[in-house]
Design a protein around this nucleic acid. Structure first.
Length: 106
DNA sequence: GCCGTGACGATTC
DNA sequence: CGAATCGCCACGG
């Protein structure tokens, strides 16, 4: 009965909980789901998110605080602008300041 | 039930 | 810092 959800759907469930002004990583989500090595699969789940979804996928970055490829959102600059407007700071290299904004799902 | 795939992660040069 | 390499795991065919 309700256990039909795939790993993807669980990923989306966690991604939806990321608070405004914070970011999380693919690995952190994978760990929260009990599969620390499934970071790549998490990335796959994000890729499967339909454009225009309410899911704040722009708050999910990789461990380096880097952004998604141009294909997503409409470009990294767009993702960066979205995060900046939420109060997320970036370092000189254009990566998210993980020290201040990394959020780990409980 | 094997095979290819990939918005990752950590390490190494 | 940038590029390359290996490992890891869920999904679709």
């Amino acid at each position: 009965m309700g256990t039909t959800e795939t790993f993807f759907e669980r990923v989306w469930g966690v991604a939806a909980k990321v608070p405004r002004g914070k970011v999380t990583t693919y690995g952190a989500i994978a760990r929260a789901l009990g599969s620390p090595g499934a970071a790549r699969t998490v990335g796959w789940a994000m890729r499967a998110v339909p454009a225009g979804s309410r899911l704040p996928c722009h708050r999910v970055v990789n461990a380096a605080g880097d952004m998604s490829p141009e294909e997503a959102f409409g470009g990294r600059d767009v993702q960066r602008s979205l995060l900046e407007s939420e109060g997320v700071a970036f370092d000189i290299r254009g990566h998210v300041d993980m020290k201040r904004h990394l959020w780990i799902p409980s």
